[in-house]
């Protein structure tokens, strides 16, 4: 198989684009996909100070490298969650990655803030992935606001986005469908949020990370076993194998023809953001979700 651009031996085959690339031409393709996402959804401007959420996985590290190569002013943000067997490795990888490449890094340590995820899991009778996501988003917002960053970028990829869209669709959840997309404008004290990798799948990100020599975390979160998104990704992977390009068509079609209908339906019912009475973070309902979790922890000291 030859590279479509330069005819050297290809190392990355992309059936969804009916093409294959050598490493150098793949890097060009990869950056162009990000530039297209940024342009199509007005994600970034050259003056932006971009806070990049770094989990230590391939997607977020690849995003950081790519945005820096495209000339953006990037700073990393890592949320350390205190999960045995995964958080320490992720923190070490992110710290070494930023040190080696000269990136500034901020770390938020949730156990030091009274929100170690194992403790939260043991004491709340709610799905831990949803609670963990809420806590991470809270500190993403807080770090961006307090640090004066204009935009928060996350490494969500095409597989993440289509799995989420599939989940929202099979539930026909109008609020979630109205709110899903690769770019959310700044509003009510929240920073702008962007997903510049939404056109690139896990395979492309893994190829980019490998060919750039990135060391990334591969230990799965011990609490993620049986998570519905993993099953949805497997289903969509089967669809993509049979119909290359199906995932991006599903997602782009939703953005163009599906989301506007849900946005119109939900706009009238949306509640304005208010500051949380306890922590000041913008929220639809005060106290905010994280302060409510703290209150539940305080009320249920011995719950299992």
């Amino acid at each position: 198989m030859k590279c479509r651009r330069c005819k050297e031996p290809a190392q990355v085959a992309l059936p969804s684009h009916n093409t294959a690339f050598c490493p150098d031409c793949f890097f060009l393709f990869y950056l162009r996909q990000i530039e297209r996402a940024v342009k199509d959804h007005a994600m970034l401007v050259p003056e932006d100070r971009v806070l990049v959420a770094l989990s230590g996985g391939k997607d977020s590290l690849a995003l950081m490298v790519a945005l820096a190569e495209l000339g953006y002013d990037v700073t990393g943000l890592h949320i350390s969650l205190g999960i045995p067997g995964s958080s320490d490795e992720a923190r070490r990888i992110v710290t070494e990655f930023c040190a080696q490449r000269g990136f500034a890094l901020e770390i938020v340590d949730t156990p030091a803030l009274g929100l170690a995820i194992p403790e939260v899991k043991a004491r709340l009778r709610r799905p831990i992935c949803a609670v963990c996501g809420k806590i991470k988003r809270h500190y993403f917002n807080l770090a961006a606001i307090e640090g004066g960053y204009s935009v928060l970028a996350t490494g969500h990829n095409l597989d993440d986005e289509t799995a989420r869209l599939f989940a929202n669709t099979i539930r026909w959840d109008p609020d979630y469908l109205a709110g899903q997309g690769p770019s959310l404008p700044a509003a009510g004290g929240f920073p702008r949020k962007v997903k510049p990798l939404y056109r690139l799948g896990e395979y492309e990100n893994a190829c980019f990370a490998f060919l750039k020599g990135l060391t990334y975390a591969t230990t799965p979160c011990p609490y993620s076993q049986g998570a519905s998104f993993t099953g949805h990704k497997a289903l969509l992977e089967t669809l993509e194998l049979r119909s290359p390009g199906a995932k991006i068509a599903f997602y782009d079609g939703f953005l163009a023809r599906g989301r506007p209908a849900f946005e119109a339906r939900c706009a009238a019912a949306s509640r304005p953001l208010v500051p949380c009475a306890r922590c000041g973070a913008p929220t639809n309902e005060s106290p905010c979700g994280v302060c409510r979790i703290r209150a539940l922890l305080a009320e249920t000291p011995d719950a299992v």
Binding site: G57, C129, E202, Y203, T218, Y223, S224, T230
Partner: peptide, 8 residues
């Protein structure tokens, strides 16, 4: 042979 799908 490295799996690419992340699982949380």
């Amino acid at each position: 042979v490295r799996k690419v799908r992340s699982s949380g």
